[in-house]
Design a binder for these strands. Structure first.
Lengths: 173, 173
DNA sequence: TTAAACATCCGAATGACATTCCGAGGAATC
DNA sequence: GATTCCTCGGAATGTCATTCGGATGTTTAA
């Protein structure tokens, strides 16, 4: 198992830029699923030695592919079982000040500016429907907000950490 | 600094259930921002010893508040700069088989069943607008899908890891 | 074709850190 | 007021991250 050099593992990209090869993709996929993996265990899964994967992870961090590691917390266990997406109709564009005001709300997890009839899309997590009502009132009270449209999540069927699955589809392009 | 017992840190919840105190919240917040923190450094930030925070983290894992740790990857750096939310109008409810079919697509990050006029809400990440077009075609081809409505993300202003901010608002309820 | 420069790998060694093991000190219960 | 329980801190141990040197394959240049 430790002699990966004589197997099919020898082929390297051999190109100038920074194209991720199969090793990098497997490493990123494994770390996206569990960032607590030891380098030794990680090396066993990809058929590389611990120093080799350590070196690759360091380069992946430096290149920006691996941004950081984070603890994934559980909303319901923390007292916030209600997840919802809120479309916010805004009066105009470029009102970053109001955006930042909403970013201060602890219930707001994500703020995106999107195309379409709404200007912003929020992902929020609340303790109860009453808390969601209060949050919507605060969002509506933000200057420049014309209206909101909420979609309460009934159940979540898939929740991958961003880009957990780095499959062949990426290099097929 | 290491003698936290004689400071204000002494007060404990002393209740039977499992209510997170200020230490737990600070620990979770710090780990949500950076899961690579050592217990020693984590202890310095919360004014606790390394074994104490280790013990708390273990309990937080056991109680389910801390689900896991994950590497946060960068979409653009990985060749998927296009983020979009897709509302999927479904013919009926309870079609979990079609849901699972969409979960197989590597571009799909999240699948939620939501209230409102659409039955499902997807978060997807693609390499290009052409890739998004192809993905929408595949989604539309899924049996039971009546139509889709897409919101392409122009820019993201806030992207917290779930429940990164465990502030006072949680226990204010 | 040959030689040099470079990148990546592995095995071993070192240092740092996670983890465990007591002993001590408050808080709640009786 | 005494006991029990829980949590903390300091020290010790084992594991793991990290580094170093040498070797191999690959690319570039002569």
């Amino acid at each position: 198992m430790p002699n990966a050099r004589n197997t099919e593992a020898v082929r390297k990209p051999a190109s100038a830029a920074r194209p991720l090869d199969g090793f990098d993709r497997k490493i990123l996929g494994a770390l996206a699923a569990d960032a607590d993996l030891s380098y030794a265990e990680l090396g066993q899964r990809v058929c590389l030695s611990a120093p080799a994967v350590h070196d690759r992870v360091k380069k992946l961090r430096a290149s920006g592919c691996l941004r950081r590691t984070a603890a994934i917390l559980d909303g319901p266990a923390l007292g916030k079982p209600l997840l919802a997406f809120v479309h916010v109709d805004s009066a105009g564009w470029g009102k970053t000040q109001e955006l930042m005001a909403m970013a201060e709300l602890p219930e707001v997890e994500e703020i995106h500016c999107v195309t379409g009839d709404t200007c912003m899309l929020l992902k929020v997590r609340c303790a109860s429907s009453r808390a969601l009502e209060a949050l919507l009132a605060r969002i509506y009270a933000t200057p420049g907000v014309k209206g909101t449209r909420s979609y309460v999540v009934l159940s979540t069927y898939l929740e991958r950490t961003p880009q957990a699955e780095i499959t062949e589809s990426l290099e097929a392009d």
